[in-house]
Design a protein around this nucleic acid. Structure first.
Lengths: 209, 209
DNA sequence: ATTTCTACCAAACGCCCGTTTGGTGGAAGC
DNA sequence: GCTTCCACCAAACGGGCGTTTGGTAGAAAT
C-alpha cells in the first residue's frame, strides 16, 4: 500500500534513486508552499502537478492519495519545528534560561519558516485519527516539556507560582503560534526585534514581579 | 440582486414577515454553527438546508450565493464581538483599567461565543475584497483602539515604554484569539479562571515591573 | 535484440458541489 | 371564486475534484 513512499529502494541503482528522490522532494516542497498559501482543501492536485511539470494523475506514482502529501509536509514541518523545540525545552539548566531559549527559538521558527507553520489546525481536520496521532503525540510532548519547564521555574523561584503551569503552557504556545497570523516578511520589523518582543510579552506574564 | 436580503419588506404583512425573518435567522444560526465546526468550505449548502428542513435549492429564496451566508454570520459575530470590544476600549478613564477590561471581555467573548469566533482568518479568503472590507475596517478600528490604549498606558506610566504599541497590540490580540484554539467548554476550567489567567499573561508582558 | 522497468501521459470515471429552472400547494387579497 | 403571491420542492446542469486505468517512450538489464 505504502510501497511508493516507504518501501526499501536499495535495489534500485543510485542514479534512479536520486532522480526519484529529487522529484519527490520537489513535489513535497511545492505542496508545502501551496498548502501554506491557500490551505489544504483549496489546493488541487492539478495545481501541484502543474508547478512540478506533470499531470495530476502522474502524482499517483509518488502517492496513494492527496492526504499523503499533507502527511509528508507535516512531517517535515515537525522535524524542523516541534522536534527541535522539544529538545531545547528538555535540555539541562536553569528553567528560566531554558524557557527564554524556547520562546525565542519558537518565535524565530514561526517567522522564518512560514511555509511549514501555516494551517496546522486546519490540517488535523483532513487526517484520519490514526494518521494524525503521530503529530498529536509530538505536539503533546512539546507542550508537556514546556509545562514542566514552567513548573520548574516556579520551584526555582523565578516564575510566579499562582498560575497553573498547564494553562500557562497552552497560553504561551497559543500566543507564539498566533504570531504567524500577522507577522509578514518585510513588514519593517526584523526577526530579531520580533523575537525580543515576543520574549518580553510571553515571559512577562509568567515572571515573578 | 440583493433583494432577498436587503430589500425593504414593509409591504408584507406582519405574519409573513415574521415567518420569513424567523426562518432566515434559523438559517444563519445553523450556518454559523456548521462554519464554526467544519469551516466554510467544508460545509455544504445541502447540509445547512437539511438541518433547517428544506432542500439546498430552496436556500436561494434567502440568498444569492453561498457567500451571503458567510457575510451574515460574520456580521453577527462582529456585532457581538469586535464592535462591543471597540466601545469598551474607547471609553474614558485610566488606560490600564480600560485595558484590563478589554482583555477580560475579549477572553470571555472567545470562551462563551465560540460559534462566532471560529474561522475568521479562513473566512477572509472566501470573500471578495469589497465584501471583506467591511470586516477589515471593523477589526482595524479595534486594533487601533487597543494600540492607543497601550500608548496611553505608557504615557500614564503604568506600562513599560520600551515596547512598540502597535506590535504589542498585535501580540495581545493574537494571543487572545488563540485561546479559541484550545479552550473547550467543560474542560474543568471555568470561564472566570481562564479570563483571570489570560489577563495575567496578557498584561504581564506590558506592565512596568 | 529482446525484455523489463520506470516515469509519465491521456483520457475517462464517479462524485458532490453550488447554482438554475420550472413547477406546486396553500394561504391571502380582491 | 378567482387570482396572486410565497415558501418550498424536484430535478437537472456544468464543472472541478480526487482517483483509476491503460498505454508509451526511452533507458537499463540480459
Amino acid at each position: 500500500m505504502d510501497a511508493n513512499i516507504l518501501d526499501d529502494i536499495s535495489h534500485a541503482d543510485p542514479a534512479q534513486r536520486k532522480d526519484r528522490e529529487e522529484r519527490w522532494a520537489q513535489v513535497v516542497a511545492v505542496s508545502a508552499a501551496l498548502f501554506a498559501q491557500k490551505g489544504y482543501e483549496a489546493t488541487s492536485l492539478r495545481e501541484i502537478a502543474e508547478r512540478v511539470g506533470m499531470l495530476k494523475g502522474s502524482l499517483y506514482h509518488y502517492i496513494n492519495g492527496k492526504s499523503d502529501l499533507l502527511v509528508h509536509v507535516l512531517r517535515e514541518a515537525h522535524s524542523r519545528g516541534v522536534l527541535v523545540l522539544t529538545k531545547i525545552a528538555e535540555r539541562e539548566g536553569q528553567a528560566l534560561e531554558r524557557l527564554e531559549e524556547v520562546i525565542t527559538a519558537h518565535a524565530k521558527y514561526i517567522c522564518t519558516e512560514r511555509v511549514f507553520t501555516a494551517g496546522f489546525i486546519e490540517a488535523h481536520r483532513h487526517l484520519t485519527p490514526d494518521r494524525a496521532r503521530e503529530f498529536d503525540v509530538a505536539e503533546r510532548n512539546y507542550r508537556k516539556a514546556v509545562e514542566r519547564l514552567i513548573a520548574r521555574g516556579q520551584v526555582e523561584g523565578d516564575l510566579r507560582d499562582d498560575l497553573d503551569p498547564k494553562v500557562s503552557a497552552l497560553c504561551l504556545l497559543g500566543f507564539l503560534n498566533s504570531l504567524h497570523g500577522w507577522v509578514k516578511p518585510a513588514s519593517g520589523l526584523t526577526t530579531r526585534r520580533l523575537c525580543d518582543h515576543a520574549l518580553a510579552m510571553g515571559l512577562g506574564g509568567l515572571r515573578k514581579t
